[in-house]
Amino acid sequence: MEEKIRVLIAKPGLDGHDRGARVVANSLRDAGMEVIYAGLQQTPQMIVNAAIQEDVDVVALSILSGAHMTIFPRVLQLLHEAGADDVLLTGGGIIGPEEMEELQRMGTGRLFGPGASLSEAAEYIREEVRARRARRGD
């Protein structure tokens, strides 16, 4: 049997607009994943602490505050310091194409903008985790 995919969903920043994070949490659960919902007001350090202890395959962040260019790199760095480079970092928000490219160059996975499809996101996560596990030799 294939190992369960575990996803941490967190919402960094001070605002409380969690509609998107919650909808995605529901949809990944329905896609058969174990979703650890960390909720609001999460700092990069809190996110990485949770990712480590929960041994997740994926960290998915919802960022609407415009702080994506600081938060994604910070989480990447902390994951790296924790020896968790194999964790897929993805997420969504209002992020321009150039910024998406730049973040992906830094090491994030695919990022999703407004109007993205839920099933597409779930499919992407499934494929990407499968590929990473194969490379890891699981």
Binding site: A25, N26, L28, D30, G32, E34, V35, Y37, A38, A50
Partner: peptide, 13 residues
């Protein structure tokens, strides 16, 4: 969920 095998684990909140 017995149907999808998925779960929403929210106790951290």
């Amino acid at each position: 969920s017995p149907f999808t095998g998925g779960a929403l684990l929210g106790d951290r909140v």
